[in-house]
Design a protein around this nucleic acid. Structure first.
Lengths: 195, 195
DNA sequence: ACCTGAACACCGTTCAAGT
DNA sequence: ACCTGAACACCGTTCAAGT
């Protein structure tokens, strides 16, 4: 039978985009290489030309999600505000792609180091000493991981909270301020920008 | 052919134990119902008599892990010490069962509510007001989730930490004390047991 | 060079059939 | 009642064959 092979112009980026789109609809668990190839209008083997394995594809998707959430900090921007916004961006994106959060954190070479770096940088630029940067950064990084990983909506609902996003953000402030137990004047002095 | 069916005495608990054992060896990803049945010396169908689905089995394993980590608090025990130990117990168990952490948190009806409850209870018994209990509890819960989920060893190594377990524990103290930014006398007053 | 589609070795799940 | 093992519908991955 005569059958012409159309030049599809497939690319790794196109595959990642389609994968994230599909994940947004059905979640990571139900993503299959066959379904993905079908959506791309391409045979199964074609997809495997650009992506060595499903695992690798998911890693690429995780990285893509982080890249999409990333916005460089403006020089005149408060570092802590910036961290807060970065985290909420990632939070929203991960929530739009069910199952990616769990995947992203288990392969923590993806976003964790960069996030931790950004957090540490912003903390030290706010005037904290190295020791405080380390400890606060540690707590903040794990807090973010937990808040972003856990379906915080469910957990927070169980705790009587009805606005997850606001509450997660409040938790960030809590940590950045060194905890609610701190008297006001202390936290203000510590958080106020130095420049 | 003559073939006798031996009474195996299979049970749900035996299946969970074997599953956790297997997970400890190969991780959640490579656990298969066939391999599990083989280890139990039982046919595939037999396992499905006691466990409706693989998903359900994993949920049961998550709960079993939490139950194993749980130790009731002694009346004369410092509530915060108890929380710290509980968390580290769970931390160790999850680390011994690769992939369970990610699973446990995604199905957060498993351990999160009880952990959050235990945390909140111990915080209020230490003398914090309801508002502080909520905020500290929130942060602590997500921190624990993150610390336990993330392969903290890798992340901490990237941050120049060489003893993950101690560092995770230190993070708990950091939160319980309301952060390192707190002057000593404040944290001591806040953390000192009331009784 | 790029793509197809059949094939392989596995899954999770079900269910008639055995004792 | 409890268990078996074959069958079904899917996977991820590979690779000869086509253009």
């Amino acid at each position: 039978v005569a059958k012409q092979t159309i030049r599809v112009g497939l690319s790794r980026d196109a595959i990642i985009d389609a994968a994230l789109e599909l994940i947004g609809e059905v979640g990571v668990d139900k993503l299959s290489m066959r379904q993905l190839s079908a959506r791309l209008g391409v045979s199964l083997g074609a997809t495997y030309r650009y992506v060595p394995t499903k695992e690798a594809l998911l890693a690429l998707c995780g990285r893509a999600l982080y890249d999409r959430s990333y916005r460089p900090r403006n020089l005149d921007e408060d570092p802590l505000d910036w961290v807060r916004e970065e985290v909420m961006n990632l939070y929203d994106l991960l929530r739009e792609h069910p199952g990616m959060a769990g995947y992203v954190i288990q392969h923590n070479d993806l976003v964790s180091p960069e996030l931790a770096m950004a957090v540490a940088e912003s903390l030290s630029s706010v005037g904290l000493n190295p020791s405080s940067v380390r400890k606060t950064g540690l707590v903040l990084t794990f807090y973010i991981a937990g808040a972003v990983l856990t379906d915080s909506g469910t957990v927070l609902a169980a705790m009587g909270v009805n606005d997850p996003r606001a509450m997660v953000s409040a938790g960030i402030d809590f940590i950045l301020r060194g905890g609610q137990l701190v008297p006001d004047q202390v936290s203000k002095r510590a958080i106020k920008r130095t420049g």
